[in-house]
């Protein structure tokens, strides 16, 4: 099960079993719903932004281990970051997840624990699971809490 272990590393299994920041945000300034029509995964991402900084970020939903762990790791990483930093992170993570397995990460970017998600690059059908939370965050940040929720069909 070697390559499986590289997909389902302990970090992923752990974040799947006990996802971090898995809750609703009462004072969200931004939120969006992401949906992967292929597998029925649904995620809702909440962000509370003040002074261009992510004060709080959380998510809810149902999904596979990959999409749950990815969203969970995302909230851990982005907590307290500025919007510019979050945007850079999004670009770097998307690049990392959608390039062939041996592509080096974008310069100046330390993946840290997110490197654990790299296993999906050998499972093209699963890449969308790993990017779902990130695309949903993008959608949330590009609009106000007042505006309608996007039913986003993410293209990895």
């Amino acid at each position: 099960m070697n390559s499986l272990l590289s997909l389902y590393q302990e970090i992923i299994l752990d974040h799947n079993r006990s996802p971090r920041n898995f809750r609703k945000l009462k004072h969200a300034t931004h939120e969006a719903q992401g949906f992967n029509p292929l597998c029925g995964d649904k995620v809702r991402v909440y962000v509370e932004v003040a002074d261009h900084r992510i004060r709080d970020i959380a998510f809810e939903g149902t999904g596979c281990a990959i999409s749950t762990a990815s969203a969970s790791l995302m909230t851990e990483f982005l907590m307290g970051k500025t919007l510019e930093e979050a945007q850079q992170f999004f670009e770097s993570v998307r690049h990392f997840l959608t390039q062939p397995p041996d592509t080096p990460p974008l310069p100046g970017f330390d993946l840290g624990k997110l490197a654990a998600l790299g296993g999906v690059r050998r499972y093209p059908a699963r890449v969308k699971c790993a990017t779902l939370g990130w695309h949903t965050l993008q959608a949330a940040l590009s609009q106000d809490a007042q505006s309608v929720t996007t039913e986003k069909d993410p293209h990895a």
Binding site: L4, L7, Y8, C39, D41, T62, G63, C64, A65, I66, T68, Y123, R126, C129
Partner: peptide
């Protein structure tokens, strides 16, 4: 507790 897609991949 295990999503069908994870089962499918394993």
């Amino acid at each position: 507790g295990i999503h069908p897609h994870d089962i499918g991949t394993v």
